[in-house]
Design a binder for these strands. Structure first.
Lengths: 127, 127
DNA sequence: ACAATATATATCCTCTAAGGATATATGTCA
DNA sequence: TGACATATATCCTTAGAGGATATATATTGT
């Protein structure tokens, strides 16, 4: 999961939330782009500890297109292999706004949880 | 997932991080307890939008005991059915500390992401 | 001219944990 | 004694994470 290597093998519980969908939406909100480039851009958001397997991003993009959050078209011109250029839709922007709302709540919960931990008495675990 | 009902059915991507393991550990750090009571206590931490299915907590507790993060013993006395009382171990405290470390990072990432969103120009999505 | 590498997209398979349903048993209360 | 709250436990299905792999096209070096 989330923690240091040695321990993490025994601890499967609790996967890190990677926020791949909102990251893609944010990236496309800034500018249209294509899969390969998106992969590089969303690293900046900090939610992905490890390299993202490309297959996962393409899967997301396809599902998001099915859901109407993004549209795409082939771009043949330019150098290299053909690219599928994605753009965010109005619907996609709505969903991103909802993600932000959720993330604000989550940030608040985390802050409270962390404070609670640091305010714990030194000799806990009583009856 | 995370968002309003209507939309959420089309959007499977991205499950909310529910932090069940650290919540249980935190709860037991404060005081020993048993499954049924833990379920009620961890609602306070705010990570669980819906009712937690009891089976999930008992599963967690068993796996955490296997991993050495908690210990348990039956308590026959008292009213009602027998309770299995759990206590956090030194190992469990270490893991909780790691969780806190991770959560601090995640809180920071969320804060940055949210700021980035609010600083977005009004007419985005250019070429 | 050819090999190696980088760019770019896509599909497929496995495995784990989430989610939910359900079973069982005991004590309480009306 | 029937209903309900307390308490623990097991089981099943499914979605998605993670990873491996396939395919094709440009670019670069020799």
């Amino acid at each position: 999961m989330v923690l240091k290597k040695a321990k993490s093998q025994r601890l499967s519980q609790g996967k890190p939330e990677r926020y791949i969908q909102p990251s893609i939406l944010m990236s496309l909100y800034v500018a249209t782009s294509y899969g390969y480039e998106i992969i590089k851009r969303i690293q900046d958001y900090g939610f992905l500890e490890k390299k993202v397997p490309p297959g996962m991003i393409y899967r997301h993009l396809r599902q998001m297109e099915d859901a109407g959050l993004v549209t795409s078209e082939w771009k043949i011109e330019g150098s290299g292999p053909a690219k599928r250029i994605y753009a965010i839709t109005a619907e996609g922007k709505e969903i991103l706004a909802m993600w932000i709302y959720y993330m604000e709540g989550q940030a608040e919960n985390l802050k409270n949880f962390i404070n609670r931990y640091h305010n714990l008495p030194k000799t806990p675990n009583g009856k």
